[in-house]
Design a protein around this nucleic acid. Structure first.
Lengths: 230, 230
DNA sequence: GGATCATTAATTGTATACAGTGCATTTTTG
DNA sequence: CAAAAATGCACTGTATACAATTAATGATCC
């Protein structure tokens, strides 16, 4: 096929507004769009090879998601990464993910249990080989399986939105390689309590697990702010 | 002033997309737009005396909020009210509101405490006079003060979105007048634990409080579905 | 009479056009 | 030279136009 590339591109942007949404979101999360940067509709439209209409639709979704905010006069800008933000996002994530753990404990299938087993095994591998990138990806998978196992679609989409924020902090997380083994330890404990069918215990463990991450990131941002990294 | 009416209208729709958003949302929550009803852009635009562009922006926000959903081929329709929906929404609300109670316990101001006292006093009044509408409004106020007291903006907006759903069930709630005194009782207990500075206890009470509502509504919907009310 | 397909109408998706607003820079005025 | 006014530019908010899809209608055939 000559136009396989075009096909792929066409598939991705079946709906231009979603293409724009994903593109801008990726740019914010990936740090290409720095906090405070204003979104110029026509510029985005040009970048995405489209017109302003889909851009405007994407902007509404991004605002509802909290990645951008309405400027006082007009237009939108990328939200800054502040310590309060992290406190809010991870506080919420801790509670919601705890709830997901609680629900998952009674609703998880054998297949999902097996998946978690396998992910943890791979995490152990990564720890040995100091493969941090792969570890982060596995960590994501672990949490995704947990979210799905809760069988609550709304919870799932909320948690995914919150987790996307994490990628904004990934620079920080990468600096904390030494603590990765703690994460695996947490995962193991969580899985054990799920298997033991103790929902309250799972909820508690998940909250602790996310809460730990919160404190690390907050601390790092506080240092960073002093050092004017942000 | 001759044009005070126009001024007011102009103020409300400073941004047409928000006017449309509020209008459609109100229609869905109020039951004017029945579940399953398809949203026709041009029709909405005509109703709101505007064009399709702001309508499309509003639609994106409504979808992200979960009040409408994308139809398989194209377009959007109002989400149905199902038992699973209620389970999801109120399950989430129970957890998030519990967290709000937890946070509020340490962050609440004296002014907010006083407001809660006053609301409960008024609720007692309504109970005596069997003033149900007023009671529901007061219940809303109580929860709103609690949300605000938590000082977490993201939590606040999530809870407000979830609470808006409640209005879709208000028909059901109105049929449960006998149980209203239980709600006041719950409010009193919650406030007591807040004053006693026991965050975990508050969280537990709030979860129980919302959980009770969940079961009542679910039960009623199950009956209603059999009776083809929905 | 019912299934199939062509034709037409609705509706969405996308692009563009235009008016209004705010902002910066320049120009005018005292 | 400073303050005010005017000009031009960039951008948003809104409306409209056009193309592509989807849904509806009706004609045709067996």
């Amino acid at each position: 096929m000559v136009n396989s590339e075009q096909d792929q591109a066409a598939k991705k942007r079946r709906l231009l507004r979603e293409h724009v949404y994903n593109g801008v979101k990726g740019a914010i999360i990936g740090g290409d769009f720095q906090p405070g940067r204003r979104l110029i509709e026509e510029k985005l439209a040009a970048d995405m090879a489209t017109s302003r209409t889909p851009v405007r639709e994407a902007i509404q979704k991004l605002e509802k998601e909290g990645l951008i905010y309405k400027l006082p006069k007009s237009g939108f800008a990328v939200k800054p990464v502040t310590e309060e933000e992290v406190e809010e996002i991870l506080g919420l994530r801790s509670v919601l993910e705890g709830y997901a753990g609680f629900l998952a404990t009674s609703r998880i299938t054998d297949i999902e249990l097996k998946q978690l087993d396998e992910i943890i095994a791979k995490e152990d591998e990564c720890l040995k080989n100091l493969n941090v990138d792969e570890f982060i990806s596995l960590d994501g998978e672990f949490h995704d399986v947990l979210y799905k196992a809760a069988k609550n679609s709304r919870l799932y989409s909320l948690l995914n939105d919150l987790r996307d924020y994490m990628y904004r902090y990934r620079v920080i997380i990468l600096h904390y390689q030494r603590k990765l083994h703690l994460a695996v330890q947490d995962h193991k404990e969580m899985l054990e309590s799920i298997k033991a069918k103790c929902p309250r215990q799972v909820e508690k463990l998940v909250r602790k697990h996310v809460g730990r991450g919160k404190e690390i990131i907050k601390k790092k941002i506080k240092q960073g702010q002093q050092a004017r990294v942000w």
